[in-house]
Amino acid sequence: MIRWLMILLVGLVLGAIVHLSTIILLPLTATRDAYARLTPLAPVNTMTVLAESAPADALMPFMDPAFANAVCRYDLSNGPLKFTAPVSIAYTSVTFYTRRDIAYYAINDRAAGRRVIELELMTSDQRAELPEDEDITAADRLIVESPTTTGLIALRALAPEPGLMPTARAAVQAARCVAEPPQPQSSR
């Protein structure tokens, strides 16, 4: 009797370990996550406007059809990135995702507080390497630190009614994400 209970107990404890490790390892093995779905469409460090959500073939599940969407699949290994997006008529937001599609930062047009949302994206190391004399706390320079070297920027512009969708799409089309020219290293 005790022997069977022991077997059951050991089995349950090992089962809990199997469960937790599969949950934790699953994101590393996923081949159909949002980043993988966007890889064939979106070149690195370039804004790509996504097609409107249609019932037949959705690129990703649970996309809000009232929004025009554009993504930038970024890679910071060659240096920081500069992101600019004009604010659309109704509501615009920018969300930053890690390589594993975790939303680590999101900002909307009102929080950004001007006509053009301008952000600089860099890794923590690149931020630490910024020259000291530059006033990085200046209000006109919004710096976002990416926890991963690669990831996604998703720009969304709301079309409050279907007739305004072309305007919203034009707004996301005007957004840019470009790698910043490498900083001169010699001055150090």
């Binding site: 937001s93 599609d101 975790i102 900002i107 998703a154």
Partner: peptide
């Protein structure tokens, strides 16, 4: 995280909504 990876969705960030 596992659900996000498995379904392939981009969730709404809290700064957005």
């Amino acid at each position: 995280r596992a659900a996000i990876a498995r379904t392939g969705r981009l969730v709404t960030g809290v700064g957005d909504g």
